[in-house]
Design a protein around this nucleic acid. Structure first.
Lengths: 195, 195
DNA sequence: CTTCCATCTGACCGATCGGTCAGGGTCTGA
DNA sequence: TCAGACCCTGACCGATCGGTCAGATGGAAG
């Protein structure tokens, strides 16, 4: 039989993903990861510059999708922005539920690190879009609760298939978002910032 | 003028609350708390048996309210359970938003500690009630996202007055919860587990 | 065989963590 | 005056953290 090439790099990545989802980023030590892989802690730090680099590589695909969603949202307003934001984020949350679960509750600290600084701005824009770019407190609150809730909860549904979870979350998002088109307290002007 | 009695115990508690909400429970060291109070770390550990005891005393009022909400929910089913759960939890979240923010993302680890073991069961029952005791995935998902989202988000609205935040969250919860009374896929039997 | 390079490791580092302990002030009441 | 309760502290402890480093190993290339 063919001798399996020991893909230590990938094994470390996979082990880190598992551990992070269980005990969180801060709650997982390099020693823990090394133990699960079956190598030494120094080996982990041979393949990755430091702990933060490990996390960055783990989150890269999800961040890329988040960034492209951010692009799709530029220029959209009102209900259109809400719908695209809801669909895009629900899809992202379902596809990358394990990666998102990693960040559970550690957003504030992680976003302070330079490697993730721009994520904060993107998620701010995403929340703004989900609120239909409305400044009403109700709309802002609903958007924030939705984003935070989906982020926190999607890791808990490992037993639910992707498409079912996506449908349920999307239906929930559409119910929960505060409608912005129908009765606007101020007349709908076209004084958008540009165009 | 009267000499102010130095309420070190209370000062430590207040400083811990502030620090925990900013950097989380694990992210705050006893040294940090002592520094803010202006005393030594040993003094903190003179007033509190250990770090966990500090957290327990901080959370005690919120836990007591949560427990009484749990009592109110016993026996309720369907839409009635949903409404009571929504009102009760929203009210709790608004009143104790600082305390709840402390637990941001550290629920899993903290709930493992014996002092908080029963909280898990209570919040499970609360989520079940918010889902109208339905076993449909959509209802379960909506309930979990709502609870997690409100818990995560309520600490972010320090600038919104209590009653306004409460109204917005309650409206959101009523929109978001999946209705259970109207079209039940299976006929409503009375085969509840007891009574 | 020698050289080179990628891989991996044990030993070690400084920093920080939660927690302990002996003892120093200070106030009060006998 | 003295004993004792209360409050507080610096020094210290073992454990663990992320990270460094010199060197062992082993296979490929010359």
């Amino acid at each position: 039989m063919v001798r399996a090439v020991p893909d230590t790099h990938g094994e470390i990545l996979a082990a880190a993903a598992r551990q992070f989802t269980v005990t969180g980023y801060r709650g997982t030590s390099l020693q823990d990861i090394a133990r699960e892989v079956g190598c030494s802690k120094a080996t982990v730090l041979y393949h990755f510059a430091n702990k933060e680099a490990l996390l960055a590589e783990l989150m890269a695909p999800a961040i890329e999708v988040l960034r492209s969603l951010d692009d799709q949202l530029t220029g959209l307003t009102g209900a259109a922005a809400q719908e695209v934001a809801a669909q895009g984020f629900v899809d992202l949350a379902v596809r990358f539920r394990q990666e998102i679960a990693v960040l559970r509750g550690e957003f504030p600290e992680l976003l302070c690190q330079p490697a993730f600084a721009h994520i904060q701005e993107i998620s701010d824009r995403l929340r703004d879009a989900l609120a239909g770019h409305s400044d009403r407190p109700g709309a802002r609150i609903a958007a924030l609760v939705l984003l935070a809730g989906i982020s926190e909860a999607c890791g808990e549904f490992a037993d639910i298939p992707d498409d079912e979870l996506r449908a349920a979350l999307l239906a929930l998002a559409r119910r929960a978002v505060e409608p912005v088109d129908a009765p606007l307290p101020h007349p709908p002007t076209t004084e958008d910032k540009d165009s």
